[in-house]
Simulated assay, not measured.
Amino acid sequence: MRFHDLRHSCATILLEDDVSMKAIQERLGHSKQQVTADLYTHVSKSLSRETANKFNKLNPNLK
């Protein structure tokens, strides 16, 4: 693992913990949120699962 990989992990962990993209951008020192969003944050299994669970709550037919 390279030191730079830790920046990707940091961004993803913060995203999973519902930290705003703006705050993550500033933490990493990027000039634009788009760089942070497109290159540094990744959708992890837990984030994907959490998103699916939130979506399922919108469907009253699912139990």
Rank of each mutant, 00 (worst) to 15 (best):
F3D: 12
L47A: 14
K63V: 09
A52T: 15
S44M: 03
L14F: 06
T41L: 10
T51C: 09
S9A: 04
N56E: 14
S48F: 15
L6H: 06
S48D: 11
E50C: 09
K54A: 15
D38E: 11
T36D: 05
T51H: 03
E16W: 05
E50W: 14
A23V: 06
S48L: 15
R7W: 01
S31T: 12
S20W: 04
F55R: 09
A37K: 10
L6N: 10
V19P: 01
K32A: 12
L6Y: 10
S31K: 14
Q34A: 12
A37S: 07
S48Y: 13
A37T: 01
H42A: 11
S48C: 11
E16T: 04
K32C: 08
R49P: 00
R49G: 00
N56G: 02
S46Q: 13
L62Y: 15
N59H: 15
N61I: 07
V35A: 10
E16L: 04
A23R: 09
K54I: 06
F3T: 09
L14R: 06
S46W: 11
N56Q: 12
R49H: 04
I24V: 13
T36Y: 10
R27F: 08
L58G: 11
V35M: 11
K45S: 05
L62E: 09
L39S: 03
R2Q: 14
K45G: 02
E50H: 10
P60N: 05
S46E: 15
F55Y: 03
